[in-house]
Structure formats: structure tokens, C-alpha cells
Amino acid sequence: MNRQLKALFDIANKDEKWIIGTMSGTSLDGLDIALCKVKGHGKQTTLELVHFTTQPYQQDYKDLITPLFANSDARLEDVCLANTWVAHKHAAMINETLAGWHLQADDIDLLASHGQTVFHAPRHSHSQPNMPNATLQIGDGDHIAQLTGIITISDFRQKHVAAGGEGAPMVKYGDYLLFVDDNEYRVLLNLGGIANLSVIPPKAYFSDIISTDTGPANTFMDALVQQHLAPKRYDHNGELAAKGVIDDALLTKLLTHPFLTLPCPKSTGQEAFSITWLNEQLTQCNLTDIALEDMLATLCAFSAKCVANAINQLIPAQQALTIYVSGGGAHNAQLLAYINAYLPNATLKSMSALGINVDAKEAALFALLANECICSDASVTFANSSHAPAVSMGKICLPN
């Protein structure tokens, strides 16, 4: 037997695994790196977050990815080269992080790499009837495995698409395995560039859970702050938005976006919610000179309203529920205040109340998916559901 396959077999049979999960989102803030101790698999899974850090991206990374991201006119050569370049950057960050944690590659059983999304094209957005759902993440897993010396599981979203899904959101799988409660009606809400959530009734089976994108969370607000207040990257704690006044006419106009009329579950990205689209809405409302604080307040309310509308579509009226919040938006007090105002029956809590750092949830999720990839029979673990294909996700990349 190939010795690396033998090593993989031995890892799959370990009672406890040390798995690194990585996530690079649309905000381009940095690479989230979560070291997780994972025991069991399927519904017997337990996950402990051992270490977490975000390795910030330097300007060269942003300069390379920004022209490619959500750009249908990007040059194929540039995408091809970036696929390898991003892998080298991520591998170097992982190696540096391990050294800082005083760990060696041999201490780590698996490395889960989400990669960097450059285009997300579900069928409802590309409008080409003869084409399927599609999504593309770059940062090749074989290069990462070779450069780190760690068996790498990558390209998770492709199997989801191959099985009939949209490749996003992926949170349903981890949320089902880790966070179903016997009594509490839960919503797990992640506020990244795009917002996604899982609705989890008490004692839920996999098929009872609905995970969906809701629309933008931080993407517009971050872009405006970077445009007008560079080198600032975001509105700290929503302080600028809190000083502004919501423009009701603009908010109403933003809420007419076609994606928001689609039934849940659904997925989206900055291809649909682009700065070009936002500028068109401002022009149509004669608001091209709106004050930055008022614009941020309106966009903050828009993100909150998208979340509230999705939850109201999926959860019975008057149902008491607890929303556990993660992602960069979990630090935005104004965004959370708007969500609470639009959902008076909800109690908002930090994801840390469930034992996961608010910034680490998605990276930890991919560590869990890597564990499922090599240990679990998805046809047993996940009941078939039209909302999320029951599949094992991830390509296995060997170091040599």
C-alpha cells in the first residue's frame, strides 16, 4: 500500500485528531487558522478549539485577488497563476503559525483548506439555462500539502455542487453535528462579507435544518469605509453607522434586489451585491452625495433587514428563538442592534456561548468537514435533504 494512503488510513482510525481548518473570506482581511481537537465523527463528533489566529493579508494579496474576484472579465492566465500563488501564500502563513504555536507538521493530522473564492455562480444568478450551478475557489490543495508536509483536504464546495447543491452555504453540516439542542430553538448567524444562517429547531434531524445566505452583511459597509477612510478597513463597532440616519427611500430600494425575492435556501456573493449595483441604486434615488454616516446607517439596516426577512420566512411567527452570532459583524454593535429591533422575539448571543470563538467558526467548520471526509459515511450521517446534499466533501491531497 502507498505509505501516504496507509498514513491516511491510520489517521481515519484515530480516536482523536488534531486538524487545522482555514478560511479566507470575501473581506480579504486575512487567513483564519483554527487548530481543533476533533473526536469521533458523525453525531458522536466533539470539537475543541485549541488555538486560533488570523494571519492578516498584506497589500500584495489584496492587489492580486481584488481584480479577479467576482469579475467575469478576469484574464484566465491571471486566475491560473493566482491558483498557485495563493496556495504558496496560505502555506507560508500556516507554517509560520505552527512555528508560533511551537508545533511541527508531524503534530497535525489533517489540514482543511477552504481556498479563496473568486467567483460564485449559482444557476439563479448566471441566467444561462443550459449551465449548472458553479463556484470556484483558488489556492490549490496539492501545493499546500507539498509545502506544509500535511495531508490536506481542499476544494470542499465542488462535491456539494456535483450533488445538486449550490456550493454554499456549507454551515448546515457542522451546525447539525455540533449545535442541535433538545430544547432551544436556535439560529446560527454568521456575519461575514455575506450573511448566512442555519435555522435549527429543537431535536432537529439533518433534514429539519435550513441553511441559507440572506444577502450582504459587511461587504458594502467595509467597501465604503475603505474607499473614504483608508487605511481604515471597517466601521469599528458600527460607531459611524450609529451617528447616521437611515434613508428610508434608499433602504426600500435596496430591498427590491431580485435575490431577496427568492425562497430560502439560496446562496449569493459579491457578484450579485456589487459596488456597481449599489451605485446604480444611489443614482436612481438621487443620493450620490449622501453623507457617509447616513449611508453606513442605511447599509447597516439593509443587512439587518435581509437577515430578519429570511428568519421571518423560515420560522413561525411569534416563535421565541436564540440567535448565536459569529463573523466580523458580531463585533458591530449597531448591526446587532438593528437585527434585534427587526426581530423582537429573538435573543442575540455571541457564538462564544457555545464554545466557539466568534471569528473562528467557519475555519473550525472546515476542520470538521475534513474529519467527516475521511471518517464518516455521509449516507448514514446525513439524511437526504433537498436543502443540502448528503455528501462527503473535500479532495484529499497528499504531501509527496
Rank of each mutant, 00 (worst) to 15 (best):
A320H: 13
A163L: 00
A121W: 11
A82M: 02
I209G: 04
I290D: 05
F220M: 09
A134P: 01
F273E: 03
I209E: 03
L64Y: 01
G394V: 03
I144G: 04
G149N: 07
T252P: 01
W85A: 07
C264N: 12
G40V: 06
H257D: 03
I151S: 08
I290K: 08
W18N: 12
R123F: 10
A272G: 04
L398E: 04
K361A: 10
L348M: 09
A388H: 08
I11H: 08
W277V: 11
N309L: 13
T135V: 05
D294K: 10
G100L: 11
N130C: 10
A195S: 14
A112H: 00
T288Q: 15
E239D: 14
G193V: 01
V38D: 02
S207R: 09
D140W: 08
E184W: 11
T84R: 11
G269A: 10
W277A: 10
T54S: 10
G193W: 00
S303K: 04
L111K: 05
L348I: 13
A390W: 04
L31A: 03
Q4R: 10
A87D: 03
N190C: 05
I311A: 10
K349M: 14
A388G: 00
Q137Y: 00
T97Y: 02
S207N: 11
F179S: 08
L398Q: 08
K6V: 14
D10L: 15
Y57K: 08
H160M: 01
T152D: 03
L282W: 07
D63A: 13
A87S: 12
K232N: 13
F382Q: 02
M393E: 00
A12Y: 05
G193L: 01
G139I: 03
K243S: 13
K39P: 01
V50Q: 13
K266E: 05
M351D: 09
K17M: 14
I151W: 08
E239G: 04
